[in-house]
């Protein structure tokens, strides 16, 4: 499916299983202090690129507005240009017609970049299990944090942002594999071919009943 993934792996392992990379003890005191400083700076002022399409975008606006006030996270500067953005917040459903646009915007963002998938539709397709909607944006771009909800409350989005902060704070500059974009490795044991994914995503249980048009 042409999936690009950003992984923390060391490709030397025979199974190519993503493993926690490196060993913190190998880093010197200086680099770890520097990491701390850089990560503190990065996480304290992430410029979001709001890819708002539907209902979740309204809740994103509520989060950015007066009561919830994203400025507390240093995020009040919404970067509508992907070139100046740090975190892509995909808020809302993504139909197939929009898929290449989303991917293009992700590609235009400079590294380091992170993605928050806001809401059920962006994360899994949600209630739109039909011909038009991408079943989760992680089939197009890598995602760091998924926010459940339809739409998620502003508190949920803020929790996701704080989770992302934690993730950023554990990153280390010495980790060479951190921001490498790779194509899915068909040789890996973890690779699932698209046909299998199709099979796995077939309806089951009550949803079989729901895909019949008349009783």
């Amino acid at each position: 499916m042409g999936l690009i993934t950003t992984v923390n792996d060391s490709s030397a392992t025979p199974l190519r299983v993503p493993a926690p990379s490196g060993d913190a003890s190998q880093d010197s005191w200086v680099t770890s202090r520097l990491d701390f400083l850089v990560n503190w700076a990065r996480s304290s002022s992430m410029w979001p690129m709001p890819f708002g399409t539907a209902c979740c975008a309204i809740e994103f606006m509520a989060t950015a507005a007066s009561r919830y006030d994203l400025a507390r996270f240093g995020m009040e500067r919404l970067s509508f240009s992907p070139r100046q953005a740090d975190v892509l917040i995909c808020a809302g459903r993504v139909p197939f017609k929009l898929a290449p646009v989303l991917r293009r915007i992700y590609q235009q963002m400079p590294q380091p970049k992170w993605v928050i998938s806001m809401g059920a539709c962006a994360s899994t397709g949600g209630m739109f299990d039909n011909y038009a909607v991408v079943q989760g944006i992680d089939t197009i771009i890598p995602v760091d944090v998924y926010v459940p909800g339809c739409p998620p409350r502003p508190e949920a989005l803020m929790y996701a942002i704080m989770m992302l902060h934690k993730k950023v704070q554990t990153e280390r500059m010495s980790d060479k594999s951190l921001r490498r974009e790779i194509e899915p490795d068909t040789e890996s044991l973890l690779y699932i071919p698209p046909s299998t994914i199709d099979e796995l995503s077939e309806p089951f249980g009550n949803s079989v009943h729901q895909t019949r048009s008349a009783p």
Partner: peptide, 29 residues
Amino acid sequence: EGHPLRKDFPLRGRFSRAEQLSQALKIDT
């Protein structure tokens, strides 16, 4: 894939999800 609201058009489209996605991603923005 056809005309979606016709009754002979399946709810999830004619192609598999993987095929739908790869065709959609081929659209040159």
